[in-house]
Simulated scan of single mutants.
Amino acid sequence: MKHASVLGLVVALGASHALADIVAPTEVVYENGAVATSLSGAPGDPDSGAEIMNKGAGNCIACHQVSALDHLAFHGEIGPPLDGVADRWSEAELRGIVANAKLTFDGSMMPSFYKTEGFVRLGNAYTGKAHADGEVAPLLSAQEIEDVVSFLLTLTED
């Protein structure tokens, strides 16, 4: 019984430590659009990042072509192709672009995936109605941003 209590305490402390490492969207430090430190405090998973590129709030291939994901249909042509993106941008720059591309590319159509305030007009999830009062969640979590960045870092010209 004593071991179970100690184990529970260790797990709880570890969980609270992990939560303490997450940078809130309003606390992100951008330097010329780049974000030098991990938003989640944990390494990204490129396999999860590839999944996010194809579905849900990420759905990056709706606008970008990615040869590494050519097994998926309907790659977009609105945004630039992402092949070789790891050769053009650093990890910090990619993190900043995914979190809030508008700070790097003035007038970008790319959504701000890790932003919770400062919107001009919010809709209420595909209903056509204005957003109700209250907090707005970011499109992607801190860990999802890290996962996407981890996947993007695999996209080299080699």
Rank of each mutant, 00 (worst) to 15 (best):
Y114D: 15
A34K: 02
A86G: 06
A130G: 06
G14R: 03
F74G: 06
E144F: 01
R95S: 04
H71V: 08
N54L: 13
P81K: 09
G76F: 00
Q143A: 10
V35K: 02
S112D: 15
L9M: 09
L139S: 11
P111I: 10
A36S: 13
E91Q: 11
S150V: 07
V29Y: 05
I145F: 04
P43W: 08
F151I: 06
L13G: 13
S16Y: 02
V85F: 02
L94V: 00
T104S: 14
Y126R: 08
P43D: 15
N59C: 05
H71W: 08
N32F: 10
Q65R: 15
V149Q: 05
D87W: 01
G41F: 05
G33F: 08
A50M: 13
P46F: 10
P80W: 03
A50N: 03
C60Y: 01
D47W: 03
M109R: 05
V66F: 04
G118L: 11
S5E: 00
I145E: 07
R88K: 14
L39G: 03
I78P: 07
T104Y: 01
S48A: 15
S67A: 15
H64I: 09
G44T: 01
E144L: 07
L122G: 10
I97F: 05
G8R: 00
Q143F: 02
D106L: 13
T127K: 06
V29G: 02
S16A: 10
Q143C: 04
P43L: 14
R121E: 15
L94C: 03
D106N: 08
V149R: 01
F105K: 09
A142D: 01
A132P: 08
F113R: 02
K129Q: 15
G107M: 12
D106M: 09
E157S: 10
V98D: 03
F151P: 09
Y30V: 06
D133E: 12
A24I: 01
A73S: 14
G49D: 07
S90Y: 00
M1Q: 01
E117N: 13
S90M: 13
G14C: 12
A42L: 14
M109I: 14
V35I: 14
V28C: 08
D45V: 02
L153C: 06
N124Y: 11
A12E: 04
L19R: 06
V10G: 01
P138D: 13
I78Y: 12
V85A: 08
A42R: 10
K55S: 14
Q65G: 09
A73H: 09
M53S: 15
A24F: 01
D133L: 12
V120G: 09
A101C: 08
S150D: 13
A24N: 13
D106K: 11
A99R: 10
T154P: 02
G134Y: 04
S16K: 10
K102R: 13
T154L: 08
F119C: 15
L139E: 13
V11T: 03
P80M: 11
V85C: 06
H131S: 12
D106H: 09
D87L: 11
L13T: 03
N54F: 00
I52P: 01
Q65I: 03
M1R: 01
G123P: 07
A132K: 11
G14F: 05
V28F: 00
E157A: 11
G84S: 08
T26P: 02
F151C: 09
V23Y: 04
